[in-house]
Design a protein around this nucleic acid. Structure first.
Length: 179
DNA sequence: CATTCGATCGGG
DNA sequence: CCGATCGAATGA
């Protein structure tokens, strides 16, 4: 009998408790869901992600150590790291891996909406979700992919040219196309 | 304090 | 191509 727990509670800790690159790939095709206070549910199929992998990763916010902002990334996996970018856009990340190891996946886009800032705006995700656990109870969760995602591509992350020769070019950006 | 600079977006 | 816009990080 197929367990019903995944579709009722969304992805759980064992999913996020893995290497951030694996999680970033595996999130492609999954459903990012938000329930408004009025009870309306919006669902977007994740189509593009980026992995930020620990203090050694010069593009990762945690590369400058533990601060009030990066604290969430050091905590347990499955929690949201939401921060304001360029003073305008809220960007949504999901903490992954072991407790104490700062890593997170940036959700960059869905099949309908391209762009990390546009996606959060459309879903109504803002800083108030920072530090919250992904769960239906907290109005933000991710459902497992329904179909197998093929044609996964990878390449350098966006906007991290400052991160040095290696980390600026490492292929930690993942996306898939319908082709 | 003062200054710099982004994991971006939309408009011209 | 460029300006908007603001908080985190850095340095004096």
């Amino acid at each position: 009998m197929k367990r019903h727990i995944e579709t009722t509670q969304g992805l759980t800790k064992n999913f996020f408790d893995r290497d951030v690159k694996i999680v970033a790939r595996d999130l492609l095709g999954c459903g990012l869901c938000v329930r408004s206070r009025q009870g309306q549910i919006k669902r977007q199929v994740i189509s593009e992600t980026e992995a930020y992998d620990g203090e050694k990763d010069l593009a990762c916010h945690a590369s400058r150590g533990r601060t009030a902002r990066t604290e969430v990334m050091y905590g347990p996996s499955g929690y949201c790291y939401v921060y304001l970018c360029y003073g305008v856009h809220w960007l949504l990340n999901v903490v992954t891996g072991s407790m104490g190891y700062p890593a997170a996946v940036l959700i960059r886009g869905s099949q309908e909406i391209e762009g990390p800032g546009r996606l959060t705006k459309s879903l109504g995700v803002d800083g108030s979700f920072n530090g919250s656990k992904l769960s239906k109870r907290n109005r933000l969760w991710i459902e497992p992919k329904e179909a197998r995602v093929t044609h996964i591509r990878s390449g350098p992350r966006v906007g991290v040219d400052y991160a040095g020769e290696h980390w600026a070019k490492v292929p930690y950006r993942f996306w898939f196309s319908k082709g």
